[in-house]
């Protein structure tokens, strides 16, 4: 019981600690690719620390939703973090929820931020909120479908079990549906973390911003929580990619050496994914909003193909 408690606490600490680092690394890699010097990789920590010291400026017209939204979304994402395997494949909390719960926890977080963006009554907020919900309506089904192909193979939607099973299969796990689902989820990851070509995290240009537009009204401590929540979500989506599709090296039993190794492997995987995302960001241009459904339908179709090829390969 106590060890399980420790596992959970450790997981929370890792998520909280690594999330800003990942953001920093992606920014640094981007800067490097664009021949800039860029801020150091620890800059996000400083930013959050600074924001936490500041007071919030809040519009007079907002209701309780505006105040509650950052906390709710933060907690929702953190709860998802307890279900997604990060450094160990048998999560103590895995009984509490599976893939579908993760998708809905992310949706909950998104929903409250979007609600808060409408609450303040500024025009940008509403625009950002509506765009965000538009994208999420495409992202959520695709995300579920993409992992379903793998879930079908293992026979459960429980992420811990999936991760452990794929890990124990070794190289045998690599198969057409594995690959197709990975490509599909990768596209989803781009959309889910608000990166180019779906959204640009570094812009405040009113025509293009989505996530930034939603949180425009936040400042100080509340902004820090929202930002940290977004970073955590990014880390979690990446670890979903890493630990569902390449879970090799993840610890399944509790031992200090195993966990240390697993943690190092995890960090390497996350950084590699981050670097790839940074490369995608630098090499593509942001798409027009109305072209986004195309990208997300490609992802949806690839997930679908993954399911079909699962049936073809397995059912022969």
């Amino acid at each position: 019981m106590l060890t399980q408690f420790a596992i959970v606490i450790f997981q929370v600490i890792i998520i909280l600690a690594l999330a800003p680092l990942l953001s920093g690394i992606i920014k640094k890699v981007k800067a490097f690719l664009q021949m800039r010097k860029g801020p150091g990789i620890f800059q996000p920590y400083y930013d959050i620390a600074k924001l936490l010291r500041k007071d919030s400026v809040v519009s007079e017209n907002v209701s309780w939703i505006f105040h509650a939204a950052p906390i709710i979304s933060f907690v929702a994402v953190l709860t998802a973090g307890l279900i997604i395997p990060v450094y160990i494949s048998n999560m103590p909390f895995s009984f509490a929820g599976d893939l579908i719960a993760v998708v809905y926890l992310f949706a909950l977080a998104r929903f409250f931020i979007a609600l808060a963006s409408l609450d303040a009554g500024s025009s940008f907020g509403g625009m950002g909120g509506s765009r965000e919900m538009f994208i999420s309506s495409l992202v959520e089904p695709a995300m579920m479908l993409s992992i379903f192909a793998i879930a079908l193979n293992v026979g459960t939607t429980n992420l811990s079990v999936i991760s452990g099973a794929v890990s124990s299969m070794g190289l045998d796990a690599i198969s057409p549906y594995h690959l197709l689902a990975f490509v599909a989820l990768f596209i989803i990851a781009i959309a889910e973390t608000g990166r180019i070509p779906v959204d640009n995290p570094a812009t405040h240009l009113e025509l293009t911003m989505i996530h930034e537009a939603m949180i425009l009204e936040y400042s100080g401590k509340q902004l820090a929580i929202v930002e940290l929540g977004a970073m955590m979500k990014q880390l979690l989506v990446f670890s979903l990619l890493a630990n569902i599709f390449f879970p090799w090296g993840i610890a399944s039993e509790l031992s200090a050496a195993g966990i240390a190794l697993s943690l190092i492997v995890f960090i390497i995987k996350i950084v590699v994914i981050g670097v790839v995302i940074a490369m995608v960001e630098t090499s593509t241009a942001k798409w027009r909003l109305f072209r986004l459904p195309n990208l997300l339908s490609i992802s949806l179709m690839l997930s679908f193909l993954a399911l079909i090829s699962f049936i073809i390969v397995k059912g022969g």
């Binding site: 198969s175 990208l295 193909l305």
Partner: peptide
């Protein structure tokens, strides 16, 4: 044959890239 399957899956991906591109 494993490699082959992966390549074929990628071929399908490329086909959908053609379908999905403007």
């Amino acid at each position: 044959s494993k490699m082959m399957q992966l390549l074929i899956a990628l071929i399908l991906v490329s086909t959908f890239m053609i379908l999905g591109s403007t």
